[in-house]
Simulated scan of single mutants.
Amino acid sequence: MNDLLAGLGVALVLEGLLWAAAPLKARRAVEEIASLSTTRIQVCAVAAVALGVFVVWLARG
């Protein structure tokens, strides 16, 4: 449970840094993502999940 909370905390820090450091670029990225097809968004999301699982697997080795 501690690892899950730590991971969520890191995700919030990274997300917050993006919006704090470059809010206009972040807004443009969100607008661009919104213009993509649902299928493309789903494929990218599944790829991100797979990459995340792989990184955690490597880190926990």
Rank of each mutant, 00 (worst) to 15 (best):
W19F: 10
A26M: 05
R40L: 14
G16E: 04
L14R: 14
A47L: 13
T38W: 10
A29F: 06
W57E: 04
S37R: 07
E15F: 14
R28G: 01
L17F: 11
E15S: 15
A48T: 11
V43C: 06
L58F: 10
G16K: 05
S35N: 06
R40H: 05
A26P: 00
L8W: 03
A48C: 12
A50W: 00
G16L: 05
W19A: 06
C44M: 12
L18Y: 05
E31W: 12
A50R: 10
A34V: 06
A22T: 04
A59N: 04
S35T: 14
W19Q: 09
F54Y: 13
K25D: 02
C44N: 14
L58H: 09
V13Q: 01
T38I: 12
E31M: 12
A11H: 01
R28W: 15
L8D: 07
E32C: 10
Q42L: 15
T38H: 11
V55N: 02
R40K: 10
A29N: 01
A22N: 04
A48E: 06
V49K: 02
L36V: 06
A47I: 05
L17P: 01
V53L: 09
L24P: 00
L12A: 15
T38F: 11
V49R: 00
G52K: 02
R28E: 09
R40E: 14
A29P: 00
V55E: 02
V13Y: 00
A48G: 12
E32R: 13
A45P: 01
V10F: 12
E32L: 13
K25Q: 13
A11P: 00
L58P: 00
R27N: 07
V43L: 12
L17T: 13
G16Q: 03
W57I: 09
L12H: 03
F54H: 08
T39V: 11
R27L: 06
R27F: 07
E31A: 15
A22M: 09
L36E: 14
A47G: 05
V49P: 00
A48K: 03
A21N: 08
A47W: 04
A59E: 01
S35H: 07
A47E: 05
L18I: 13
W19T: 09
E32G: 07
W57G: 08
L58K: 12
A59K: 11
G16C: 07
A29D: 03
V56C: 05
L12K: 09
E32V: 13
V13K: 02
L14W: 09
A20G: 03
V13G: 00
A50E: 00
V13H: 03
E32Q: 15
G9E: 04
L18E: 02
A20W: 07
L8I: 05
V55P: 02
L14E: 07
E31H: 08
L8T: 06
L8A: 15
W19R: 13
V55M: 06
E31F: 10
A22R: 06
A45Q: 12
R40Q: 12
W57D: 03
V55T: 09
C44P: 00
V43D: 13
G16D: 01
R28S: 05
T39A: 15
G52N: 05
L58M: 13
A11F: 03
V10W: 08
S37I: 02
